[in-house]
């Protein structure tokens, strides 16, 4: 059993918060460049160019890519042969996030209570940690800071099983096009299919952690991703919802088995500033 020091995790998380906020990942920068080649709207092109310029300024001058440095959403892949010594993983992630958001001058965007007071906690906690078990003795943490604008446009539906592929496609396309400018398009569309009500939503979020534009390993689902992307990009919504050919950069589906009576679907949208950063300890 490999021991991982609590403080090591805290420090790694702090560094992750800064990296995610300032450095647009290469895969996202690449899809923006690819879209520039196909975008027909002059204003759309101008906006895509400003996204690239913004990413350069953010990286070089250490200014957050977006002022909404998000809720801190972590995917923690925990090897079964390792454990944290000196405290819980969740506590370490929370402590590292609070330090990162303070020391990196990132915006604290979390409130204590959702209804009453809505007082800002001042350190961007609580954090959201999804734990996944993996083989081996490595702890891999991926942070995807999640902005409010795109999160607010996300939806779930409990479809009838026989609505099948077309039912899912229609629901996803409708969700994306109706959200218009609000989620800061072009978006990355995370789709969770199967499981149950809440697991479909988790899968939709997990889909956003995939390398941008990488297709689903099952060719049937890769084809569905392609169909949805094509339909979404025919909507005309375009960059910032002001018209154009690029409404989404990519569609990622994650799926799992489900009850005979159900076909749960969830759509979780990510803005064009699809920030994510990983560390393996």
């Amino acid at each position: 059993m490999r021991k991982i020091n609590y403080k090591t995790v805290v420090e790694a998380v702090e560094a992750l918060c800064l990296k995610a906020a300032y450095e647009l990942p290469e895969d996202v920068e690449n899809v923006i460049k690819e879209s520039l080649a196909v975008e027909e709207s002059p204003l759309g092109k101008s906006i895509l160019k400003q996204y690239l310029e913004n990413a350069d300024i953010a990286r070089n001058k250490r200014i957050p890519i977006c002022q909404d440095t998000g809720a801190a959403v972590f995917l923690a892949e925990v090897g079964t042969d390792c454990f944290i010594e000196g405290g819980s993983l969740t506590d370490a992630v929370k402590q590292g996030t609070a330090a990162g958001y303070k020391n990196g001058y990132l915006r604290k965007s979390m409130v204590e209570d959702p209804i009453f007071d809505r007082k800002n906690t001042g350190d961007n906690t609580p954090v959201i940690v999804h734990l996944l078990e993996t083989e081996g003795d490595i702890l891999k943490l991926t942070l995807a800071p999640k902005g409010g604008g795109s999160e607010n446009m996300s939806k779930t539906a409990m479809l009838k099983p026989l609505e099948g592929e077309q039912g899912v496609i229609d629901f996803v396309v409708k969700t994306v096009t109706e959200s218009g400018a609000n989620p800061c398009p072009p978006t990355i569309v995370g789709v969770g299919i199967g499981g149950d009500f809440e697991y479909a939503a988790f899968l939709a979020k997990k889909a956003l952690f995939r390398r941008t534009g990488e297709p689903h390993p099952d060719p049937r689902y890769a084809e569905m991703e392609h169909k949805i992307l094509k339909a979404v990009n025919e909507s005309g919504v375009g960059p910032q919802g002001l018209g154009g050919r690029t409404t989404a950069f990519a569609v990622h589906i994650e799926k799992t088995g489900c009850h005979i009576a159900s076909l749960p679907v969830a759509v979780n949208l990510n803005c064009h500033a699809a920030r994510h950063a990983s560390v393996s300890i």
Partner: peptide, 13 residues
Amino acid sequence: FAAIGGAGALIAE
């Protein structure tokens, strides 16, 4: 007016 969402560093300048 629409400002460009997600261009926070560019606007900061």
